[in-house]
Nucleic acid binder design. Structure first.
Length: 191
DNA sequence: AGTGTGATTATCT
DNA sequence: GATAATCACACTT
């Protein structure tokens, strides 16, 4: 509801573009993110603290992982001050290291650009799951963390994908790197 | 290239 | 008991 909080949230989403997701044997550059904030009906934390959402009320830089649609894990990064729920969904990345193992985990991917071009695909290829919940991503912890990368030259924005709640707002809270569009999830434009 | 639908389970009402 | 921040596949154009 407060403008400064929204600005902080959206800045966090843009700042994650270009950062590297690092795991032993794996490295990928983030090219697509989506913001979820307080006072946001599309955010899981909108209705308050639950066992699943509690990490979003903790400090910035933690992993919020959850399982959905009976099939898929999602990977988010918390981004607002303690007590204020906010998280950025990591929707797509470019593989840098670990292609071979990623392909084994995603045998249906036809090309390298299909390995990580969606939030569920990304978690499948990197095997991100409940074991990473609330992990501190701001330091090299030997498991899963983030490192500074190359900031994209141009950032494009759009409305969020796949929501049941909060899509009426048509918030332009989806961000991606213009020069990496082949690696971004579809659809690129969302009516 | 676009539309529609089934899969399958943790989470919350 | 209903729902879901998705994916893959089967269609149609």
């Amino acid at each position: 509801m407060t403008h400064s909080t929204d600005a902080e949230l959206l800045q966090a989403a843009k700042d994650l573009l270009g950062q590297h997701i690092v795991m032993p044997g794996f490295r990928a550059r983030i090219v697509e993110t989506e913001a979820y904030g307080p006072a946001d009906p599309g955010c899981h934390a909108y209705r308050g603290v639950t066992p699943r959402t509690q990490v979003m009320f903790d400090k910035p830089g933690l992993a919020y992982t959850y399982f959905t649609y009976g099939n898929h894990w999602m990977f988010c990064v918390t981004c607002l001050k303690p007590g204020t729920a906010g998280a950025i969904l990591i929707r797509a990345a470019v593989p840098i290291e670990g292609h071979e193992e990623m392909r084994k985990r995603r045998p249906k991917a036809k090309k390298d650009q299909d390995l990580l071009n969606g939030p569920g695909k990304l978690c499948a290829a990197l095997q991100i799951n409940q074991s990473h919940y609330a992990l501190d991503l701001t330091q090299s912890n030997g498991t899963l963390w983030l490192e500074t990368g190359e900031r994209p030259r141009k950032i494009r924005t759009g409305t969020r994908i796949g929501l049941a709640q909060g899509k009426g707002d048509l918030l332009p809270w989806r961000f991606w790197s213009a020069e990496d569009e082949p690696h971004v999830s579809r659809p690129l434009t969302n009516p």
